[in-house]
Design a binder for these strands. Structure first.
Lengths: 239, 239
DNA sequence: TTTGCTACTGACCAATCGGTCAGTAATGTA
DNA sequence: TACATTACTGACCGATTGGTCAGTAGCAAA
């Protein structure tokens, strides 16, 4: 007894008023129905793209699936044809938006010939160009914000994104240590310390002081790289 | 027509069923009412303490005021006697829990005699002991998570906490530069780079990899201080 | 044109939660 | 004991939203 036509024909009980109110509009509006097309192939990535935009802007919990669907030009029902739940939608977002960037970074790193310091610096700015300066920048903040209440998402992100990023940095550091360019430091801790300010740059731009103080990303990342390289350099090495 | 007794006497309309269902329990339960005391003075800080715990654990939006009230041993109605809104409660939490720690840090810093490097290192570990290792540690993550959807809170936290913390660090750096111990670097950027890993340490422990990988805070902060001091040291100065 | 398949719709449901307020009871006062 | 004050309660309201599903309509084969 769900469809509006039926309810309108036989209004009954408490919801009669509400049902009437909304469907009168429909009727007055006449047959002005939105043209609807059937494009099974394109829907999932369109929905994922819309979801990325809204998740980043409002957070996972605060994003309404109605809005995601509308933003992708379909109804919420359609969204549920392609994703079984809100969490499934999130995983698709990570898969479609972030993993390709990670692969690009891995290739960039594999092909780069130069000192570890150079690679480190260029990798940082590569990261910035491909992630920090794009709409992907909001994802780290998104993860930090929501991971507590959605441990499933957190684990997914950790396994599919964080670990790969850390491995990348670890390789650069190991290369530098092996060549005698860097001091022998604890790899895991060093990775943490390199990543932290980069993550924080993203986070800050999307929260706390978002509108209070602009951070000069260029200057910030430059100084960060200087500090890291200088801090890890072996004694004899010119920082 | 709100009180249950009245509604029960004259059940009518759509909510009769629901009203009955819930108040039958009350009656069957008999007069087993919780002893209630009147302690106007103690309530606000008890509520704020309960709120801190829950905000940090679940986030601002996800924390129910019913739970905060219950956790403080009162009803939600009582909570609203002392705080006009959820946001007002948050401000009280910051005021009661964080500002005292900031004052302690300011005093610690003012009384400390030593090189800028020493002060920086000790201030970092002071911070860790007083905030990072306590339940306050969750607050930075809380702010990052919620600031997007609650700009009012973000501004409050920024003005009352961030700015004071930054001023503190700025003073240490300025002292170091003046004495020739540190290089002449851009203060704002340097502050950002010192704070970022400390914030990130808190954040990490409360999210993303919270249960995936333990971070050795001691080692992490030690290396961080080493890097900062080494990175800012003037040429002639022994790092 | 008819029929069958299925992509798509949107009203609805059930549960959640910030906030309200009429009523209750603990405490002080006479 | 009678009365006044007020801290406290908890059922209720209204708005919100993830998820459902009976029904609609685009499309192609017969």
């Amino acid at each position: 007894m769900n469809p509006s036509s039926f309810v309108n024909s036989f209004p009954s009980g408490a919801n009669a008023a509400a049902a009437d109110a909304s469907s009168v509009n429909l009727r007055v509006g006449g047959d002005r129905r939105k043209q609807r097309s059937r494009r099974k192939e394109a829907r999932p990535s369109e929905l994922a793209a819309a979801a990325l935009e809204l998740f980043v802007e409002r957070g996972f919990a605060a994003t309404r699936l109605d809005d995601v669907a509308a933003s992708a030009g379909v109804s919420k029902g359609t969204l549920y044809l392609y994703f079984n739940s809100k969490e499934a939608l999130f995983k698709a977002v990570v898969q479609e938006a972030i993993v390709p960037e990670l692969i690009a970074a891995e290739q960039f790193m594999a092909n780069h010939r130069g000192s570890a310091a150079e690679v480190l610096r260029e990798l940082t700015f590569f990261w910035w160009r491909h992630s920090g300066a794009t709409r992907l920048a909001g994802v780290p903040k998104l993860m930090i914000a929501e991971s507590g209440n959605f441990p499933e998402l957190a684990k997914y992100y950790h396994d599919h994104v964080m670990m790969r990023g850390r491995a990348l940095l670890g390789a650069v550091l190991a290369r530098g240590i092996e060549s005698g360019e860097f001091r022998r430091v604890d790899l895991e801790t060093a990775i943490d310390l390199i990543i932290a300010p980069v993550m924080m740059l993203h986070v800050w731009r999307y929260s706390v002081c978002a509108h209070e103080r602009e951070i000069d990303a260029e200057a910030y990342l430059t100084m960060h790289c200087d500090m890291i390289i200088r801090g890890f350099a072996t004694e004899g090495n010119p920082a």
